[in-house]
Simulated scan of single mutants.
Amino acid sequence: MQNSYAELPNLVIRAANGVDFVYRDTGGHAEHTPIVLFQHFRGNLDYWDPALIDRLAQTRRVITFDNAGVGGSTGVPADTIEQTARDAIHFITAIGLTRTDLLGFSIGSFVAQEIAMRRPALVRRLVLASSAPKGAPGMHGWAPEVIGAVGKPETSAEDYLGIFFTESENSRQAGKETLGRIFGSRTQDRDETTDWATREAQYDAVCTWGIPDHATLERLAAIDMPVFVANGDSDPMILPHYSYLLAGLIPQARLKIYPDAAHGFLFQYHDEFATDVTEFLS
Rank of each mutant, 00 (worst) to 15 (best):
S185G: 08
E192C: 11
L220W: 01
Q173D: 11
I223F: 02
A205M: 02
Q188N: 11
N231E: 12
A230I: 01
Q268W: 06
D260V: 09
T194A: 05
G232M: 01
A221D: 12
P153K: 09
K152T: 12
L179A: 04
G210F: 02
Y244D: 14
K256R: 10
G148A: 08
A274Q: 03
F165G: 02
A197S: 15
D224P: 07
L255R: 10
Y244I: 14
M237R: 06
A253D: 01
N170E: 14
Q188T: 15
D233K: 10
A247L: 10
A215L: 12
H270V: 11
D213S: 10
D271W: 14
N170S: 11
I163N: 01
S168D: 05
E167L: 11
K176Q: 10
D224Y: 08
G148R: 00
V150I: 15
P259K: 04
A274S: 12
V146R: 07
T208E: 09
V227Y: 02
F267W: 06
A261W: 01
A230V: 03
P226V: 05
P259H: 07
L220Y: 05
E218F: 10
A253K: 00
I182L: 13
S243Y: 03
V150E: 04
E192I: 12
T193H: 15
T178S: 14
S185C: 09
L255E: 02
P236H: 04
D260K: 06
T166Q: 05
